[in-house]
């Protein structure tokens, strides 16, 4: 290995996403290990939001439990001065934030998180096996998002459609979350 690297001058790194290739489906639910994405944890005071929104190309949401989406990017409200921004279109979130002079903290967490798609008429029931929040459409509408818990793990939950959720969890917990979801999916009625 070392010799080969010396010869070519290139050390090749092979990336294995934590849940690569893991999928599961039950009668009413499909679980998908979602594609890797760019992510930042963004902290900023009110006075910086206009400039950050402009740089990111989407308006950072200010209302609890809401999100905004534009051009493959989604900003999820996590707290009064905290957002999780996800880019699925290959954009560079950190570079965009670096242009902003106003006070903020943008930390790259692309590889910290793993995303799992939970879709189908039984998605809500499947998630409620481990998440104590009210996930009815009235309490958790499409576009709604929240940091919460799933079993013994902290997750960020984002509802992408009436019967579809995106679960973001830290990669070292992803095996636990996926296995828990798979078991819950088997029991979930529509």
């Amino acid at each position: 290995m070392a010799k080969a690297a010396q010869k070519t001058g290139i050390v090749e790194a092979e990336r294995h996403p934590a849940l690569a290739g893991r999928n599961a489906s039950a009668a009413h639910v499909t679980l998908t290990a979602l594609e890797p994405a760019e992510r930042i944890s963004l902290r900023a005071p009110e006075a910086s939001l206009a400039a950050l929104s402009k740089a990111l190309g989407l308006t950072l949401p200010k209302k609890p439990k809401t999100s905004t989406s534009k051009g493959g990017r989604t900003a999820l409200w996590l707290g009064p001065d905290e957002w999780l921004v996800i880019d699925d279109a290959g954009g560079d979130l950190l570079a965009d934030c670096a242009k902003v002079k106003q006070l903020h903290s943008a930390v790259g967490v692309s590889h910290r998180n793993v995303a799992i798609g939970v879709t189908g008429p039984g998605a809500e029931t499947t998630l409620n096996a481990g998440c104590p929040q009210d996930l009815s459409l009235a309490a958790f509408p499409v576009g709604g998002c929240s940091r919460t818990i799933f079993g013994k793990v902290e997750i960020v939950l984002y509802r992408t459609a009436e019967d579809a959720f995106r679960v973001e969890c830290w990669r070292s917990f992803s095996d636990y979350v996926f296995t828990f979801l798979s078991e819950a999916a088997r029991d979930a009625a529509a």
Partner: peptide, 18 residues
Amino acid sequence: MLLIRCPYCEEERPELEF
């Protein structure tokens, strides 16, 4: 489970989050 109102989230949430 207890429901606790978070003044920042502006709604009642399950006690396990607190």
